[in-house]
Amino acid sequence: MANGVSGPMPRRWGMPVLFLLAMAAAAAGFVANAYFSEIRAGNVWSLTYGSAAAALLVLAVTYGARRRMMRLASRFRAGGAAGWLGLHIWGGALFLLLMLMHSGFRLPSGVITGWLWALSWWTVLSGIGGRMLQRWIPRMLSSGLTTEVLYERIPDLVEEIRGRAARLAAGSHEAIATLYRDLEPEFAAPRRRWLFFVDITAGRERRGREFRHLRRLLGGEDREQLDRLEGFYRTKLEIDAHYTLQQTLRLWLYLHVPGSLLLVALLAAHLYSVWAY
């Protein structure tokens, strides 16, 4: 229907189960194989596993293409991106298994095949790592933070907050202005802190003490302004946390994507060499 109201979806097991079955089948095939015929470059087993692995790799890479061609994907009803991601992940894992079976669990001795082997590991492992980040970081972000910001807008928002804080400090009690001067470097720009990986609210409590200390000394309007400054500061910290973690969510792709493209290119070279020689 044109207006699909989607409720909460139950966890879908179909995909993982399907792929685990496929993995089991592949492994069984491999064990059976050890009795019937050795997997060796060029023989029928090796070719079967190899072409299955190649097909899976292409399938996994298609996910990237699908993400970049959403309009076409919707137009041709190519299925939801979540399903594709499932295919991507499980297909990628299965690819590695089939690749290893293709090589007979031996280290290849050729230059291209060696690179293929290494890059397959690299890509799949970085993918698994990325997947773990994808499951871990959002939970961290949503558990401890109240603000939700767009990564690309962080510099603007930080500037906005700095401006507001500066204006506030300029027209307020001397003590607050002094505190702001202390804090000014922290407001200046988005900051990465490794600490956010451990504690998403890093720094809030430490600074909070200063604010609490000052609050006792101030009264009335000044106290209100102090609270507002603390609000700015807290938001800035949250934005920094977003900045740090969201950046990680974006940067891991640099480990995964270029390598995988190279992997496909190597696969093409490999296919060519298999075909031509």
Binding site: G4, S6, M70, R71, G80, A82, L85
Partner: peptide, 11 residues
């Protein structure tokens, strides 16, 4: 087709 935002969410 349905809302693209939903169908294109990988997660």
């Amino acid at each position: 087709h349905g809302p693209a935002c939903v169908s294109n969410c990988p997660q």
